[in-house]
Write a protein that binds this DNA or RNA. Structure first.
Lengths: 141, 141
DNA sequence: GTTATAATTGAAAAAGATTTTCAATAAGGT
DNA sequence: ACCTTATTGAAAATCTTTTTCAATTATAAC
């Protein structure tokens, strides 16, 4: 995956590549944990000091529409964004340091079928997040 | 489950039973779908016209702390609340009418073990929501 | 039943998050 | 280099949620 693929995708949908979008995109591409708009704002301003918070919101919206980033939901709040996974990936979050890992979750089909039969629902989509402690937070290193 | 069990539980933790709390509790106990604080406010004011929105927030907070209601997360927003399930239950939501159904999801342990081994994480908790169409919305009745 | 006391209430204000408006700017095709 | 039009940032507006505070009221003690 080339590191400018996100910008290419933005451009392919008719967007112009600006300094502001470059900064926000770089922050999101390299984030190890989910970031709120304000956190993105603070990080991106190191590269584009003139950047406005509104532009961060607008750029995040575009990246989300393209499926490049996803919203991460916590008990405490749901404003954080993280790069999206490919295909049927789900999120595993460290409760201590916030680090996010994506994992495959294809073996859920049996569950969906069972629940669909039990409830009469047609299951269309699902949404799974796991929480725990990452190796470093666990072992102290 | 007696219909005033929620009030009993509130009282057991030192809370006083007021008209406002009665109204909010009744709304949440009988809701078929997740409601936002403002929706609870509107519904509860039919019983307690004097009710303030702040009190709704405060009562929802108490009910959530007691584990009687849970926050429901949607793409569009995460302010809605619904009665909580017992034990390891998860949510199934109808995308069309919003109806919520709780189902058991005990067969996820294998998945957790696999992901834990793969990532080095110690999995502590999880969180699963399914989306689909309920029987009535599907069959047109 | 009356009283005392401490939790609870609603209104208003404050705080936070997000969206809208709008004139100035600048990207990218020509 | 020019033109068109998307994009930008500041300010204001909108929503949601929390805090503050004086008045009210549930509950326990008498």
């Amino acid at each position: 995956m080339p590191h400018d693929s996100w910008l290419d995708q933005l451009q392919a949908t008719g967007c112009r590549i600006t300094g502001a979008r470059r900064a926000v995109t770089e922050v999101m591409q390299s984030a190890e944990r989910a970031l709120t708009p304000v956190e993105v704002y603070d990080a991106a301003r190191k590269r584009a000091p003139h950047l406005g918070l509104v532009t961060v919101y607008r750029t995040l919206e575009k990246l989300e529409a393209l499926g490049l980033i996803q919203r991460v939901h916590h008990e405490q709040g749901c404003q954080a964004f993280l790069r999206a996974g490919v295909g049927h990936q789900h999120l595993l979050l460290c409760e201590r340091c916030g680090r996010a890992v994506l994992f495959d979750g294809d073996d859920l089909d049996a569950l969906f079928e069972r629940v669909g039969k039990q409830t009469g629902f047609e299951i269309k989509s699902h949404w799974l997040q796991l929480y725990g402690l990452c190796q470093e937070c666990r072992t102290g290193f």
